[in-house]
Design a protein around this nucleic acid. Structure first.
Lengths: 346, 346
DNA sequence: GCCTCTCTTGGAATCGATCCCATGAGACTT
DNA sequence: AAGTCTCATGGGATCGATTCCAAGAGAGGC
């Protein structure tokens, strides 16, 4: 049945009402499940709606009710790390509660982030979850002032408005370092992001704290910090291993660096964990396939996404002005023991 | 500055008009870039809009213009394979043209897919891109009949309405098999999905075609088909290698199976490519880190997403009834040579 | 000086829902 | 039998934009 040229006439609530022989008001009440409806009217309207294949127009609903049941998700990318896990879980949890996700990939560009935030506000989203660059605080504040709750996920600028759901980076780093200490290591190398980055700073602090608790001091020569790049991981590894007193264990604090470290270790013929033990922060699907399977700190992407969904929905349901600023919640890290850590050689 | 309790009053076009001392009509014309506006009015309206921080209400615009600039993306998951690459690229390309993406993850569940499609129609999306289950053809047809273009990506049910953008699976399989043949292999094992699956069928055909062109016949014992599961890959590998006349090369037709095959090869101490050569269909980020780096068939996720974006936008801009049914476009496969293929032992 | 034509502008209808308010029909009280 | 109360319903305003239509202001032709 070809339907070339037919103008698709959409079925409106008025059509349903007429078909059912009632007014728009009554039809609306039936379909939005309100009270005070006679059984007769209910049946007739429901039958009419089904018969006509009625589908409410959300744009019209939104205009009237000021709720779109749309939530913006702003993040760096979907390729790396836990971001796509977060996007998937967040979408599921929000959908369970009747909300849909508008996906915005910023590529860590603050201008693009700003454009997306403006656009989301134009679309009248009910809330925003942002894994942000941290460089649009003023804009975020404006958005919150307009009554749209904002939830910062994973990263959070100091003065950002709204709640935050964060990974417990320093705890994770502490766990990792402690695990290496427990295995008997005393010279533990650190490869991680710059101190300017939130996660870089916190993970370094966790590392340092674990050493201190064990009565050790941070040895500057064993600490290498640099950009979140594969190539940096490679160079950092070389710098650490080419020393006379090379570390017996490594804590690699982000997966970008790990992607450089792992192939380079193999390249150099360094045996893990016989020659050197290794823990990476952030689990990546294939770390368990690696030879040896990599012991990691799992920062709980799924839990982060679930908590973020719950918190942003709570803020939405609190109604306009429902944003509570300042509170941060942290999802604890978890040590996943696999096969890349052993006792140091005697 | 605490703003607890302030009712956020949104700035409307009327506010801008009053501030600028013109009518709503004129303000609207200025902001939607229409013609026939005096320079004076233009300046005043633009200044007023900027001063008040005016932001158009898209719900209201959509209601009036019947365009939301929203596109639905319906897919299986974001975790596996090329799906998150597709989601990311598609989002970018659509955003470049002023469209946003509503993300819907179905988990390959046809009921959830149906719910999402209904929901997208309610949201009045301008178009839908679906990596589908293939089991909601009737619903897709209804949606197309209502004037919403649908584009099937990667998978396409036989009678699905709208255009399709597909990977050239049989070409890719042909390329893979041919590459192994060129290296001198004659006994080439096939591990892939069931014939009922589209990709399973096409990839097997490509494999068979390459053998035939080389004057060889398909040896049933060298072909193992089964579900898209890691565990299947493992079992299939065992079945092939435990034979007397084991193959000298393997074509693994999907990444799920590959995830079983690769660790199992290592487990068994089979050396790649010395003992057996290997090509996997679908590139996965870490295949290049594997030891040896895995030669793959890249099905072109980026190109698929770009083409899909272009086609769905073209259909949208063609206007209501702009859906052209039946045309499929295929993105060619590409052989990425790495280190897992060598000549067979003499 | 009058008529026509173009350019710019404002008024009002419209998109498709929701929801306040008023009204009518019954049920029940006294 | 009259009055009160509740329940169900319909009318109409409203959300915030776009856009058709009519009208006013000048410019220019004759």
């Amino acid at each position: 049945m070809e339907s070339v040229g037919t103008i698709p006439r959409t079925v409106t609530l008025l059509d349903v009402a007429q078909e059912a022989g009632v007014s728009r008001s009554t039809a609306s009440r039936v379909l939005s499940g309100a009270t005070s409806i006679s059984a007769d009217a209910r049946d007739r309207v429901e039958a009419a709606a089904a018969r006509l294949g009625y589908r409410p127009n959300r744009a019209a609903q939104s205009l009237r009710t000021r709720r779109t049941r749309l939530v913006g998700l702003v993040l760096n990318n979907l390729v790396n790390a836990s971001f796509h896990a977060i996007a998937e879980v967040l979408q599921q949890r929000l959908d369970d509660r009747g909300y849909q996700v508008i996906l915005c990939v910023t590529g860590a560009d603050e201008d693009r982030e700003a454009r997306y935030l403006e656009m989301l506000a134009e679309h009248q989203v009910d809330g925003v979850v942002v894994i942000g660059t941290g460089r649009n605080v003023a804009l975020l504040e404006r958005i919150v002032d307009e009554g749209i709750p904002v939830l910062s996920l994973i990263r959070c600028a100091p003065e950002a408005p709204g709640e935050a759901v964060l990974a417990d980076d320093s705890d994770g780093a502490y766990l990792a370092t402690e695990h290496l200490l427990d295995a008997g290591h005393r010279r533990i190398g650190y490869i991680g992001g710059p101190l300017e980055a939130n996660s870089g700073r916190e993970r370094f602090h966790g590392y340092a704290a674990a050493l201190t608790s064990a009565g050790l001091q941070v040895v500057d020569d064993l600490v290498v910090r640099g950009p979140f790049l594969e190539s940096f991981g490679e160079k950092a590894l070389a710098a650490l291993l080419d020393r006379d007193d090379a570390p017996t264990a490594l804590y690699v604090a982000n997966h970008e660096a790990a992607f450089g470290v792992l192939p380079e270790l193999r390249e150099r013929g360094v045996s893990v964990p016989d020659d050197v033990s290794l823990i990476c922060h952030e689990d990546v699907s294939w770390f368990r396939y690696w030879q040896p399977a990599i012991t990691v700190i799992d920062n709980g992407a799924t839990e982060l996404a679930e908590l973020a969904a719950n918190r942003v929905l709570a803020a939405i349901e609190r109604g306009p002005g429902g944003t509570q600023s300042g509170r941060a919640m942290r999802v604890g890290a978890r040590l996943v023991q696999r096969a890349s850590v052993a006792r140091p050689r005697a």
